[in-house]
Amino acid sequence: MSASFTLDDLKRILLEGAGAAEGVDLDGDILDTSFTDLGYESLALLETGSRIEREWAITLDDSALTDAATPRGLIGIVNRHITAAAA
């Protein structure tokens, strides 16, 4: 596990926990694409958040997942939690 949470980490966790929608290429430029446009509804994000919490031993706020509309937003929130946990 690296020190920070990357797009590759997020893609792997999304695929494991929720799969990928037909016609969506997670290897494309998705950082600023909304999770809705990527085909993930709230339950998929809940599952994704749960897996991130387990793997990185952090606790995300209930609102973190709903506030993070895009992969870039979620990655930022997770990294802030990792930094805070390490401090």
Partner: peptide, 8 residues
């Protein structure tokens, strides 16, 4: 089935 449906 698409991969999106398998975990659920």
């Amino acid at each position: 089935l698409p991969s999106r449906l398998l975990p659920q």
